[in-house]
């Protein structure tokens, strides 16, 4: 599904990835760990084509992706949940925000409304359609953000620190939603407990390379 081969990347003179390799299969449920600044978010941005590596190959859904239009094809098929929900939710009402992706992918307004209703229902957010996005609580924002990603019917999810700022109850709700879906995903998180409950395989980035990891022997 996603293959990264020999990725080199750095900001200015600061080297982040030094020959990083990663292979993700469709049903994988990965937890990505690593210390602050080791490049977890950068890695996701490389997969989504928001950043381009200095060298190395990015293969997603069977094809090598290099240009913006290559990546435009996969966005939506690979759903990406941003760290800060305020970055993700930019429309005033929930219904418009959730419909944004489906409309971009060519659904008619009527189809998009159906998609929104279905997605919100699956996340137990029915009735949120006309709520104002910036007036939602932190937890609600995160769940609605997830809805905006799921509405595009992705084949794989990437979640960047999904539990930051969430209380236990909302975290439980998020876990429940993830477990119920049949989607594969990769979760970046510092929350060991959350990772333990959602991932079946752990990896971490160390010295610019990808390593397998387990929860107990992990350096964080």
């Amino acid at each position: 599904m996603i293959q990264l081969r020999d990725i080199h990347f750095g900001y200015g003179s600061q080297l982040i990835f030094n020959g990083l390799n990663l292979s993700i299969e469709p049903g994988d449920r990965l937890g990505l760990l690593g210390s602050n600044g080791c490049g977890k978010t950068t890695l996701c941005h490389i997969i989504m084509g928001l950043l381009r590596p200095k060298s190395g190959e990015v293969r997603i859904l069977g094809e090598t992706r290099t240009t913006e239009s290559d990546f435009a094809e996969i966005r939506g098929r690979i759903g990406f949940l941003f760290q800060d929900s305020d970055d993700q939710l930019f429309c005033p009402t929930v219904i418009e925000d959730v419909a944004f992706g489906p409309l971009n992918m060519g659904q008619s307004p009527e189809e998009a409304k159906k998609t929104v209703a279905g997605t919100l229902k699956s996340l137990k957010l029915s009735g949120f359609e006309d709520r104002i996005t910036y007036k939602l609580s932190g937890g609600e924002k995160r769940l609605v953000s997830l809805a905006t990603v799921l509405a595009m019917n992705p084949e794989f999810l990437i979640l960047d620190e999904p539990t930051t700022g969430l209380d236990e109850k909302t975290t439980d709700r998020l876990i429940e939603n993830l477990k119920e879906s049949s989607l594969g995903y990769m979760i970046i998180s510092h929350d060991r407990d959350f990772v333990k409950r959602t991932a079946n395989k752990l990896i971490h980035i160390k010295e610019g390379q990808m390593r397998a990891a387990n929860l107990d022997g992990l350096e964080m």
Binding site: L50, A72, F82, D87, G101, N104
Partner: peptide
């Protein structure tokens, strides 16, 4: 970041 998030949603 907002533009990135928007691009990720097509």
């Amino acid at each position: 970041r907002i533009l990135q998030a928007m691009r990720c949603r097509g």
